[in-house]
Nucleic acid binder design. Structure first.
Length: 638
DNA sequence: GTAGGGTTAG
């Protein structure tokens, strides 16, 4: 007891301890076992182990609970150690250790699990099912089927594992065929088939199956319905979802509480609500929420996320305050809501008040800083995250790469690159942002390296990033060469590709090439030109001194010219000393951005160059009158 | 204490 006290008191395990002392003398072993399993269930594995180690008498259940704790955490080495130390293993211990090996990724583990399965002194249906589903989940359907056929007594659970396995590997037809030949289905068979079909995008087929076989077992049928409602909802097919929802008898009003009856449950309502939230129909979502008899945390969270989505933070935080027991998801939604709607202070306030943070909480807050262009804040939070021992994942790193881009911080960028290589393959889309980061930081060679490391799969964004990098470095020949290569490989360019291509032409003074590309974009690729493309074209013409053509283009383009368009023209006017057009462009720019000093400064310099001192002075006075402050280093063309 | 199925946050 004394050792137990010492080990536990250090681990702030006060509640477990007091109840334990209370029952210590009067309780048999199973009370201890219950404590261990409770600790494991609430994720307190180390405390469970301390208790386990301090126990004088243990039975198989004690050992098995501890092993199951490690198996759940995927700590297979520790589980195996206990398994080996265990004086008398029973069938549950064997099943646990086998399932532990099969739930670890990697063929080495699977082989070891199989070896243990072969060594088992006896097997029950759980042993067989563990190995079958283990193979199925790891894409080894050949082995799964072999064992399934070798099983002495098949049951529904093993068949269900086979269905899941086929569907995990995308074998929709095999799964449906297998389901139809099964001697009996239970509710889980139908649910497994429906959810697998949904995952494979076969929603209408799933609906057909549901209506054909749903009658066979009304027991727990609602699970399958819920899966399909959610499946339709997630794809924005709200009418189909609603039709299914309406097919389930209402759960309100009736007094009888027969769990087995086919009725809506809280998940049905939540899934239907989610479908409305997905399409932005907050009114219908709210209506359902108000009509529900039983709400769980997920119901509140779904509605909160709906209000967050439409940027109604007043209502979202009102619900958050009202809800009975907010969990980490609720907090994350609120933090995300404020961060995405530009209220970083409130986001930070809630982030710091959170009782528990998980990886997503950190990612949400870092992404919030990044979105609001507070790059320093994001970088600070990222280092705090690492200090607190939270491991970044690809979402974290993706935000932080953008942060490096924003800060133009090559030093931090290279560090992040190191981390990225540890967690993703060179073919991951996250490397696209590394290309952009490197080229924005002036390290075009590093950008090129990342680009070339993607050997197996480059998507359009990869190509766009690299072409854009070349273009912004003035390497027009390289940009155009890469663009040619991209087309040869039948990668379909996007409007972003053409912005870079046209920019490259502008830098290199390739007027004719620019015109050709612009035309090709519309006629060969059917891409609607955007205002950015016109800005590039104006830039191209302007740099060549074709100012009148540039002005004509501005007058005839189907958009209201933006600051990039006028900025390009104004720069060109300065280079070619065209004061009249410069005045037009500067005037337009000032109207678009009254607080910007750049047009004034440019005009002033032009007049000064032409030694028209009076006009120059007029511009300076005007600028003072409008109370525009001069800022250094500002340019529109980039 | 072990095998198969459902909803919410980056």
């Amino acid at each position: 007891m004394a050792t137990l006290y010492r080990t536990l008191s250090r681990r702030r395990c006060f509640h477990a301890l007091t109840s334990l002392t209370r029952t210590y003398y009067s309780s048999p072993l199973h009370q201890y076992n219950k404590y261990i399993s409770n600790l494991i269930r609430s994720g307190r594995l180390r405390e469970a182990r301390a208790l386990f180690d301090s126990m004088k008498h243990r039975n198989a259940v004690t050992w098995n609970s501890m092993i199951s704790g490690y198996v759940h955490r995927r700590e297979i080495v520790k589980a195996r150690q206990l398994f080996d130390e265990m004086p008398q293993r029973d069938i549950v211990s064997w099943n646990l250790i086998v399932s532990g090996y099969f739930s670890c990724r990697g063929s080495r583990f699977i082989e070891e699990g199989r070896k243990l399965f072969e060594l088992m002194p006896q097997r029950d249906s759980v042993s067989w099912n563990t190995v079958i589903s283990g193979y199925a989940k790891n894409g080894r359907m050949d082995q799964a089927m072999k064992l399934f056929n070798a099983m002495p007594e098949r049951n529904v659970v093993s068949s269900n594992a086979v269905i899941t396995g086929f569907l995990l590997n995308g074998n929709v037809d095999l799964a449906v065929g297998f389901f139809k030949t099964m001697p009996e289905h239970d509710s889980a068979s139908l649910s497994a088939l429906i959810s697998g079909l949904v995952r494979n995008g076969e929603l209408d087929m799933a609906a057909g199956i549901l209506h054909e076989f749903g009658g066979d077992d009304k027991d727990n049928l609602v699970h399958a319905y819920n899966t399909l409602i959610a499946g339709y909802g997630q794809r924005g097919h709200v009418e189909e979802a609603r039709r299914l929802f309406d097919e389930i008898p209402d759960d309100r009003g009736g007094g009888e509480k027969d769990q087995r009856r086919f009725r809506r449950n809280v998940v049905s309502w939540n899934s239907m609500m989610m479908s409305y939230v997905k399409v932005g129909d907050i009114v219908s979502a709210r209506e359902l929420f108000d009509r529900m008899v039983e709400r769980d945390t997920c119901s509140w969270n779904t509605l909160i996320s709906g209000y967050v989505q439409i940027s109604n933070m007043d209502e979202a935080s009102k619900l958050f305050r009202e809800m009975p027991s907010p969990d980490v998801l609720s907090w994350n939604s609120i933090v995300s809501g404020f961060a995405q709607n530009g209220n970083l202070n409130l986001a930070k306030y809630f982030f710091e008040k959170m009782p528990h943070k998980n990886l997503i909480s950190w990612n949400t807050m870092i992404a919030g800083y990044e979105k609001n262009e507070d790059y320093k804040g994001a970088a600070r939070l990222f280092s705090q995250m690492r200090l607190e021992g939270e491991k970044p994942d690809k979402h974290t790193l993706s935000s932080v790469i953008s942060v490096c881009t924003g800060l133009v911080d090559l030093y931090l960028g290279k560090q992040i690159h190191q981390l990225v290589t540890k967690i993703v393959l060179p073919d991951s889309p996250i490397n696209n942002s590394l290309i952009t980061m490197y080229s924005r930081c002036g390290a075009i060679v590093d950008a090129c390296t990342v680009f070339n490391e993607r050997k197996l799969y480059k998507d359009v964004i990869t190509w766009n990033a690299m072409i854009g990098g070349y273009a912004s470095h003035g390497l027009a020949a390289e940009a155009l060469e890469l663009f040619k290569l991209m087309k040869r490989l039948k990668i379909h360019p996007t409007y972003i590709t053409f912005i870079s291509v046209l920019n490259a032409c502008a830098h290199a003074g390739l007027v004719e090439e620019g015109r050709i590309q612009f035309k090709s974009m519309v006629t060969d690729y059917g891409i609607e030109p955007r205002v950015e493309h016109f800005a590039s074209l104006v830039d191209i013409l302007g740099r060549q001194g074709q100012l009148k053509e540039a002005m004509d283009l501005i007058n005839t383009m189907p958009f209201k010219p933006d600051k990039a368009v006028w900025g390009a023209l104004l720069s060109a006017c300065r280079v070619h000393n065209n004061v009249e057009l410069a005045i037009v462009a500067a005037d337009a720019l000032i109207r678009l951005e009254p607080e910007s000093s750049a047009p004034y400064v440019l005009l002033y310099n032009m007049y000064a160059n032409l030694r028209q001192w009076e006009d120059a002075e007029r511009v300076r006075v005007l600028m003072e009158e409008k109370n525009v402050k001069k800022q250094a280093g500002y340019s529109w063309v980039d």
